[in-house]
Nucleic acid binder design. Structure first.
Length: 143
DNA sequence: GCCAACGTTGGC
DNA sequence: GCCAACGTTGGC
């Protein structure tokens, strides 16, 4: 059973270009309980949108979970979690927040409803729709 | 346990 | 730079 997610990053702090260069990246620094819960629900192979917050405000890429939740090494108390993500592909036509807000079917996505949440689930229906908007094909996200 | 004060995120 | 939304802290 495949699950879909969306993670946010401020490009000034960590951009999609850096993700591409690093290929596999530990997703550390999450300090919110709901986001932590979502991190811990991620399974190897799950696909995740990579969203640029603040600058760009658009979905720019797709990554895959390659290591399930483990203690965040950047947390001295080791009470927060992180996962490892691997670059899958870029989104040919980045999907902007503005676009998403303009589409009635997408009004329920957490990106809009819980604008401060940085790790959130995406329903399969929304995933498919967002892929279509971004020009992502099934072939792009196969191994 | 309530709530005011304060800090952070993120869109505009 | 502003501010809404929301989380956290600390006094009571």
């Amino acid at each position: 059973m495949m699950n879909y997610w969306l993670i946010k990053s401020e490009p000034d702090a960590f951009s999609w270009q850096e993700q591409i260069q690093n290929n596999i990246e530990p997703w550390t620094g999450i300090r919110n309980h709901q986001a932590k819960k979502n991190l811990q629900s991620m399974k190897n192979g799950d696909l995740t949108f990579f969203y640029h917050s603040n600058v760009g405000k658009e979905i720019v890429g797709i990554v895959r979970i390659v290591k399930e939740a483990y203690p965040d090494p950047t947390d001295p108390d080791q009470k927060w979690s992180c996962v490892d993500v691997q670059t899958v592909c870029s989104v040919p036509t980045p999907v902007t927040l503005k676009q998403i807000k303009a589409i009635p079917e997408l009004q329920e996505v957490s990106l809009i409803k819980q604008s401060r949440l940085s790790v959130m689930p995406i329903t399969p229906e929304h995933w498919k729709l967002l892929c279509n908007l971004g020009g992502i094909t099934q072939a792009d996200i196969k191994k």
